[in-house]
Amino acid sequence: MAEDAQKNIGTWYIDPDAEDRMADGHAPIWRHLIGLILERDLTDKSVLDFGCNQGGLLRHLYAIRPFRKALGIDIAETSIAKAETLKGNLPIQHQVGGRLEGWAEEFDLAISHEVIYLVPDIDSHASEIWRALKPGGVYYAVTGCHTDNPLWPKWRELVANRTNTVVQDRSITDYGRAFEKAGFDVSARKLEYDGFIPFVADGWTPDFADALNYYTQTKIVFRLVKR
């Protein structure tokens, strides 16, 4: 990402209270995602959460599969401050920003959840993650916000109106090509969330059938291995 392409912000959502609601809603999805990660023993591994927001995913990961150390990075300054207060004594460092200078071949595992669709330059992002991973390191990048999502025309307007971000339009294939070009072996699967999905009439999926389809069919998990 170019230095001037993704500025630091206060919070992702214009409504700051939405940050806490988002974390609560994502918690069961995070636990399901952790169950999909093929790397089972992380006790001697270093982990990166790109776009960590308030740090909830790393805290969930540590509770289920403890790691040696982790970095959570995000452009949202207020969110990073809250992540620091919530981490307690966990071996997690947080950093404000969207660049990974100084972290060459540092991480065994990288994760991002609903972040890559907001990255201005996906090619630069893929290259930065590749450089930050150790040889053989793995990046799990999760998103349902892509142009193959039938809800995307409506959602891109909601994202633009509700958040302090700039929306990008990319297909699943666009992501696959970008990560392959960066030097990853690319594979993917549907998230296929298998838990009960709550009905939330918040404007994102007022049609409950859309919510069920989104979490089981539309949301994609990329597994990207550094060659």
Rank of each mutant, 00 (worst) to 15 (best):
Y117H: 14
D202P: 10
K82W: 06
A70M: 06
S124E: 12
L61Y: 07
L38Q: 15
S112T: 13
G195Q: 00
A132T: 04
V200A: 06
K45G: 02
K69V: 04
V166S: 13
P91N: 02
N149T: 01
V142H: 00
L86W: 08
I80M: 03
D24H: 08
D74N: 10
L191Q: 10
V142S: 02
N8G: 01
A209R: 13
D44W: 11
Y175K: 00
D202S: 07
G183L: 06
T85G: 06
L191E: 10
E180D: 14
W12N: 05
D4V: 13
G10Q: 15
L48I: 08
A18G: 00
D24W: 09
I220P: 04
G102N: 06
E128I: 04
E157W: 05
P206K: 04
G55K: 02
F50S: 11
I29E: 02
G25S: 10
L42C: 08
H32E: 00
E105Q: 14
S171G: 06
E101V: 14
P28V: 07
V200Y: 04
K69Q: 14
D17C: 05
T173Q: 15
Q93A: 15
Y13C: 09
T218S: 05
L48W: 11
F208P: 04
S187L: 10
E114Q: 14
T173E: 15
R65Y: 07
D210I: 05
P28E: 01
S112Y: 04
F67M: 05
K82V: 12
A76H: 05
D148T: 03
D17L: 14
Y140H: 12
A160T: 10
W30F: 15
W30L: 08
F199R: 13
D148P: 04
F107T: 13
L58C: 08
L58T: 03
L42N: 04
Q168W: 03
